[in-house]
Design a protein around this nucleic acid. Structure first.
Lengths: 261, 261
DNA sequence: TAGTGGTCTAGACCACGCC
DNA sequence: GCGTGGTCTAGACCACTAC
């Protein structure tokens, strides 16, 4: 419109121009991680648009996961400090020693904790299908939220057929020293095979709440189904990994990586 | 406000109530995948708020990836039909046969295509670090977009040190029958080890454009670095996997899956 | 108390696809 | 032409936090 000292930038709608401009400033370091953005009022003046338009531009960046709003202080460039999540570290040699625990050892020097809730529940369709349960069969759900330095780090929910684990340590809401898989093995259900699925999606409101996720944070949804020698599924573990706190890393050997043609 | 036949729902702000209500209808099947939502005008009447508030509620669902807007027709419940992406399928046995190509074989019955662009470029910091390049060293970039039934399916960009692949088939913008890794191997750079990293994040505007992503679609960002026997990195492959088109699936054997304690 | 972002209203004009 | 969603304006009130 009839602006005066109004900042002129690229093409497209106003909100696109503004978000593109700010995104560029974030990319080139003009706005460094952790830096505070101008206030909505300042941006309103700077670009010569109304506050609603400025907010629309900022919403774009919020939903891209680039900035966060810390009300009523202002908007800040988001800082990422992902932890490494190693699927192969989830394979631990026997005999088990507590020092080998994947969760504890991956993050030495920080302060790991976890909450555990155990319940008997009807399985979701997703779990029932993978455990090959018949209608009416119940499962034991061990729901955990793992924390690092007091911040939620990931969700790890495991499900077992109730018939298999009734009156075992798996049903107690506390850490299992030898690991739930050893308990299953001692019951005659040693797992020799696992199928992993990894989905990438936006979190549900429930996941946002449990993991205290900022808007614009996608998640990795990792479903691991464990089978016995006989092919019986005995355990489904679902891990929810916030995209801003994880890198999933693994190593392969001896064969030629393809990915090419 | 002083509404009349206004739909009353839960707690929170109006936009939260409205988006919660619609999300529930999507979850319980009242609004099935592919179904058309009421128009903004209808929702405005139904909930007794202004159009701006209705749009704020719909924006929440769009950014959760639950609905898409098909202008100027209306909003629709999003349908997901993910393809399976198997990292282990990326290991192919030698001798290579075209029928084994991971991309082709995983999707039989559909119509795969790809575009290839090859350029000599300065590496990004990300690539330079993984290839252990010195300042000024250039790379060959092979950028591909893979399509299935005419729809973009994923991005696969590979980077090679220019010194290694000058005047080889890798520099031609066309399919390499035997695979780029075989070319590298024949040059004396057979890869025996790979390190994989998988990040989960929202796409950049460039990725949105190349993959024609709907808003609210997160991506998996897969970086694979291949090393020779001597530990020299010779190739970085970056695959961008739209969350709405992929399930990453793999299988493990012989060891006990942990994920438990 | 001042200033921040969060929410909501009321109204306007536009581009696009369909009829 | 009509109805759809996309954009933008102008103004209001609120909750929260730092001062």
């Amino acid at each position: 419109m009839g602006g005066m000292a109004v900042k002129k930038v690229g093409r497209g709608t106003y909100k696109q121009q503004i978000s593109d401009d700010l995104r560029q400033q974030i990319a080139d370091g003009t706005l460094a991680p952790g830096a505070k953005l101008p206030t909505e009022a300042q941006l309103t003046d700077e670009y010569g648009v109304t506050r609603g338009t400025v907010r629309a531009a900022l919403d774009i960046l919020v939903n891209e996961g680039l900035i966060v709003s810390k009300r009523p202080v202002g908007y800040f460039v988001r800082e990422r400090k992902p932890m490494v999540f190693r699927p192969q570290a989830e394979f631990r040699p026997r005999p088990y020693t507590p020092e080998m625990d994947a969760f504890m050892t991956e993050h030495q020097g920080r302060d790991p904790e976890q909450t555990i809730e155990v319940s008997i529940a009807e399985p979701t369709a997703e779990v029932a299908k993978r455990l090959q349960l018949k209608a009416g069969q119940l499962v034991v759900a061990r729901r955990r939220v793992r924390y690092l330095d007091g911040e939620p780090f990931n969700i790890n929910d495991s499900f077992f057929p109730l018939d298999l684990v009734r009156d075992t340590p798996i049903m107690r809401p506390e850490s299992i020293a030898e690991g739930a898989n050893e308990v299953l093995a001692s019951l005659g259900y040693r797992q020799v095979r696992a199928i992993d699925e990894l989905y990438v999606r936006m979190p549900t409101p429930d996941e946002v709440r449990r993991l205290e996720l900022a808007p614009g944070t996608p998640i990795g949804y990792h479903v691991c189904t464990g089978y016995t020698e006989e092919g019986k599924p005995v355990r489904v573990a679902i891990t929810v990994l916030p995209g801003d706190r994880h890198v999933i890393s693994y190593e392969r050997r001896r064969e030629t990586p393809a990915d090419e043609s």
